[in-house]
Design a binder for these strands. Structure first.
Lengths: 205, 205
DNA sequence: TGTACATCAGTGAACGCGCGTTCACTGATGTAC
DNA sequence: TGTACATCAGTGAACGCGCGTTCACTGATGTAC
């Protein structure tokens, strides 16, 4: 943003933001380093002052995405307050809100094909985000009697998968169909039914 | 397969199969027309005898995928026999089985970014596959009293999203984590909990 | 405050590459007589 | 059965393009004296 200071001021972040905009518009594979440079008003070669190359630029987008994602999830979870249930539901909503608000980040994280294992900082950022959901699931399953308590990891995986599926199929213009329901309603209802199935929510209409 | 007959015999289908293999290995964006041609033992220019271009080749992969997908789903649904519930569960399993067995098709269908609306035959093929799941959902919700009967379209969307999420996050080597559960177990358990939440399955352990 | 120098962010030209696509062609296959 | 011809699937060379990346450079900024 700040166009002062050195030649450009903050080219590094400007490139990241340009990349995110392009990824959002054209998909992670459609975006090119040259486009990102041009969009930041700079020569392609200038990118190499700040990133090792194209892949590194995408990885940084994903890294920042996971950081924001983790923050949002943690904030929504709010240490399990006011109740474990409410906190959990808020966390689910935060997932979709993130995907909606930061589509470029989301695509860089989940659709760019970058390998989490090859970059430790990226792996750690992803791990933290996953940890929040897992903790929320653990806390919530404590309310169930042990004999009908699902593994928290499975619980969390279900919610993650449902959320991701809703994002991919119904929160984008792309491959699945338009549905008569908003992604938010769809996810909220889906999680509600699922929680009822676990016995975590009363079975009234 | 049949290398007899004309020069090649059945180059069209050979190209499709080469494309599917490449898409499976490198993703829908990573595959190139030239690779597909080479893999089929043919010059890139030969592709244009059978397809309008790269996009048309991908679209045909998706079209065949939707056809197989629809067949599999329909076969699994089996007109709702032996019971609406069993048929529905079989349909859910068929979704994952398809994604497992035909990863190239699956990626061409859901990850290639092709537009369903631009190609009527493609749209029709996709519509049919979706119709099977919707019918299964409708049939099953009839067992519920009207006042606690969710819209079948929403029901179907939930199952589709959960299935798709499981495929994308846990049935591939890629972005999410490895989970201690197999995708099959994950999906089966998830659908089970969901159905219990709807009151379609008894609440015993 | 002013001058000389060091730093280093960004330039501009160039590279090798592989892509999708075109075009005139060739030669194996199928057909008519 | 044999010959002449028509068809058309696949060839091979070429194209224009845009990509990611490199390199020697330049000139604005920061610093020492």
């Amino acid at each position: 943003m700040a166009k002062q200071g050195y030649h450009h001021g903050n080219l590094r972040q400007a490139l990241i933001e340009a990349a995110l905009r392009l990824i959002e518009q054209q998909g992670p594979q459609g975006f090119t380093l040259s486009d990102a440079a041009k969009s930041a008003g700079v020569t392609p070669a200038a990118v190499y002052r700040h990133f090792a190359g194209r892949d590194d630029l995408i990885a940084e987008c994903a890294r920042q995405g996971f950081a924001i994602f983790g923050d949002l999830m943690e904030h929504a979870y709010n240490d399990g307050k006011p109740t474990a249930l409410r906190a959990f539901e808020a966390t689910g909503r935060a997932y979709l809100a993130f995907a909606r608000k930061f589509p470029g980040h989301y695509m860089a994280m989940f659709e760019s094909g970058i390998s989490l294992t090859s970059d430790p900082t990226l792996a750690r950022a992803a791990e933290r985000a996953r940890g929040v959901l897992l903790r929320a699931a653990e806390e919530l399953t404590r309310q169930l009697p042990p004999n009908r308590r699902p593994p928290a990891a499975m619980f969390a995986a279900h919610i993650w998968a449902l959320s991701h599926g809703v994002v991919e199929l119904f929160a984008r213009g792309s491959p699945g169909t338009r549905s008569p329901f908003s992604p938010e309603d769809l996810l909220e209802a889906g999680i509600g039914i699922y929680l009822r199935g676990l016995g975590l929510v009363p079975a009234d209409g």
